[in-house]
Amino acid sequence: TYYTVKSGDTLNKIAAQYGVSVANLRSWNGISGDLIFVGQKLIVKKG
């Protein structure tokens, strides 16, 4: 599943929405910090 980042989104918010961990979101998307951008597509695997 792909999720497109919207204004106001955070990794924590997206992780909670999908029932996954922030660590997994980072791993699946090659993100090291907490910086995400509006319009960015993130890979999300269902929890």
Rank of each mutant, 00 (worst) to 15 (best):
T1V: 14
T1S: 11
T1G: 12
Y2P: 05
Y2W: 14
Y3A: 04
Y3P: 01
Y3T: 04
Y3V: 07
Y3H: 10
T4R: 07
T4D: 06
T4P: 03
T4S: 08
V5I: 08
V5T: 05
K6I: 14
K6E: 13
K6Y: 04
K6L: 10
S7G: 10
G8D: 08
G8W: 05
G8A: 06
G8P: 03
D9M: 03
T10L: 04
T10Q: 06
T10G: 03
L11C: 04
L11W: 05
N12R: 12
N12I: 13
N12M: 15
N12S: 14
K13Y: 12
K13I: 11
I14L: 07
I14C: 02
I14F: 02
I14M: 03
I14A: 01
A15C: 05
A15L: 02
A16P: 03
A16S: 11
Q17H: 14
Y18N: 08
Y18E: 07
Y18T: 08
Y18V: 09
Y18K: 05
G19M: 11
G19Y: 08
G19S: 10
G19Q: 13
V20W: 03
V20K: 03
S21C: 06
S21K: 07
S21A: 08
S21E: 09
S21M: 06
S21Y: 04
S21Q: 07
V22Q: 06
V22N: 04
L25A: 01
L25F: 02
R26H: 05
R26A: 08
R26M: 13
R26C: 07
R26W: 04
S27H: 15
S27N: 11
S27V: 11
W28Q: 04
W28D: 04
W28H: 03
N29I: 01
N29T: 02
G30N: 13
I31M: 10
I31W: 04
I31P: 02
I31H: 03
I31K: 03
S32H: 15
S32I: 13
S32A: 15
G33V: 07
G33I: 06
L35G: 09
L35M: 14
L35N: 11
I36S: 02
I36T: 04
F37C: 08
F37Y: 12
V38N: 07
G39M: 04
G39R: 03
Q40V: 05
Q40A: 06
K41N: 10
K41E: 11
K41I: 14
L42T: 01
L42Q: 00
L42K: 00
L42W: 01
I43R: 08
I43V: 10
V44H: 02
V44A: 04
V44G: 01
K45F: 15
K45Y: 15
K45A: 15
K45G: 13
K46I: 15
K46G: 15
K46L: 15
G47N: 14
G47D: 15
